[in-house]
Design a protein around this nucleic acid. Sequence first.
DNA 1: TCAGCGCATGTTTTT
DNA 2: CATGCGCTGA
Length: 741
Amino acid sequence: MRAMSVDPIVNSLNEAQRRAVTSDADRLLVLAGAGSGKTRVLVHRIAWLIQACHLAPHNILAVTFTNKAAAEMRHRIESLLRAPLGAMWVGTFHGIAHRFLRLHWQEAKLPQNFQILDSDDQLRLVKRVMRGMELDETRWPPKQAQGFINSNKDEGLRPEHIDDYGDIHQKTLVNIYQQYQDACQTGGMVDFAELLLRSHELWLKQPALLQHYRQRFRHVLVDEFQDTNRIQYAWLRMLVGNDNAITIVGDDDQSIYGWRGARVENIRQFGDDFGRAEVVRLEQNYRSTSIILNAANGVITHNSDRLGKNLWTSGAEGDPISVYAGFNEVDEARFIAERIQHALQQGHRRDDIAILYRSNAQSRVLEEALLRAAIPYRIYGGHRFFERAEIKNALAYLRLICHRDDDAAFERVVNTPTRGLGDKSLERIRALARELKIPLWQASLQVLQHRELATKAGNALKGFLALIEQLDQETRGTGLSEQAERVIGASGLIAFHKNEKDDRGEARVENLKELISATREFEISLQQESATLAAFLDHAALEAGETQAGENEDSVQMMTLHAAKGLEFPIVFMAGVEEGLFPSMQSADDPHRMEEERRLCYVGITRAMKNLYITYAESRRIYGSEALHAPSRFIREIPIHLLQEVRASARLTRPMSTFDSGFGGVRERSAAYRGNNGYGGARIQADDSPYQLGRSVRHPKFGDGVIMGCEGQGPNARVRVNFRGEGEKWLVAQYARLEFV
DNA sequence: TCAGCGCATGTTTTT
DNA sequence: CATGCGCTGA
């Protein structure tokens, strides 16, 4: 390996990138603007450390925020070096902290088989603890308590470190935190924030261990440093110490997670705190046209709190940014769908196009518009695979099998599928568990022993305990996938979900089957012997699973602005760019939050490579009622010569011109708009086919529905109808006997 | 045990 | 508006 030339590592880099990659500074801060080759620098620097500085992969630790980023980084390093890097640690903060805790469970005072609690499990546990404290859930929202616990852990604080100011409210929350923590400890459970806090404390209390890792990790590299929170910062600080090297890469202008504890200040603090750092700025952008870049710069310069950086490109100027004012959100969506269709006709791939929005609630109308235009799309976000209820149920069975004391799992499935074990019996078990500070499983055994339950409930409980024991014994020594298959089969979950009356039941059964194949894939991806049930459960908890249906199909990408960070698309639509929505209303009063909104806008704009469309609606239905919003201040912050207003088709005259009125002047709405049917009506159809999109129809068998699409003409036309209850069907017009209603 | 009702609630999200 | 939750009654 050493004989290899380092040329490929540095040749393709620009001057700044090369300085960053080859720097011999112990503390290197790379301020990397959007699209400036951030990941590239990180990847090449690691390769450089290995090949030019002869650092063993074993001595390097690379930390990211998401599993996806970690996987991508490893992959890119390996393909650059053309060698696998088994010994190098690349992972998320949480993944790495977890690894430490697994290796040193004893020193960390955890049971060997401790389990990871995801936020859903955590909330349930918080609720349980609160019920034990007899707190009124309306006065003390469990979600808020959960947030309190997590944000304190993220700050590195234990209950005893929190000052309650003698305030009852605060006192109660601290108390909940304490009791929750006790419950975690007895149950051998660790939540996400705990992974970091615990491993930080582990080093604090075990200097020898810390020393060992300091000797091992000579160089630590961190991606997206602007997203680190306090505990992550402290964790890094401790691991690096005074003698090791650290490279951090980040962009203060892309800090959009302040609301969940990320501290941009960490970047600024880095220099002082770690000792003088060399700073390299990456300002040349390789992604976007200069118009898009200048727009982004125009917006972000309105923030005062910046380290300062100016992106530039040597590339083409490109097309102006299109701004469209929809008269309502349906019209806005219609416009977007129409433009997408146009782009597709020009030969663009659907994958090249993204629609970005501030809040998930916006996706629905957009989705409907794409559906109507028959454009395949994919929505990022929402529930991921391992977070789905049916999957969590199945996993709970598996968790109980390898860990009887897992109370979260116990609670979840003692009565799922329902087996006649009511809340009263359960409460008795919980009470005993609380009293004796023992897990629910053991409490159940005792309750049974003392015959404290009604016969029916008692038998149900006995049956449940026996089922778990039996499955454990039967599947001992069998492979993971076989075990999963057997357990899911015996749990009765399949029948349970099949019987659900919604049409969702079927999908759930499918998901359960997919879970079994996920265990198979897991076996294949690891060596057989390390693919244990416990390992799979960790995997499920730490990687919620990107698996989404239709992932491979070429489709338009829809996601929130947050979810878009780190991605790029030739064509980007930013929808709902209105005051109150984006920037969000709840950020209006706080200048810091307003700056974060602006950074979010900066992130959004810089996702676009060639074409950017900014759209907003003059009127939008929000929470049932209609709201009139002014165009977002962010539009005004873009230099006006970069913008081009897209006017609605000639059929209607706009009541307000975006530019003439100086944004947000006259808000008069003409009667012509009110009269239309909510489908962007007047403008949408010139079609003489009776099967118009959105039209309500009735079918003798399927009942009422709405036309979602139409192919062909005349009697042979095929019509796509979304029936209430029946879902979507394709019908041939001449046989369908559709009635218009 | 489960359906049905009234009520509160309503950004952004990874691990 | 629309969803999700807790509580109530059969």
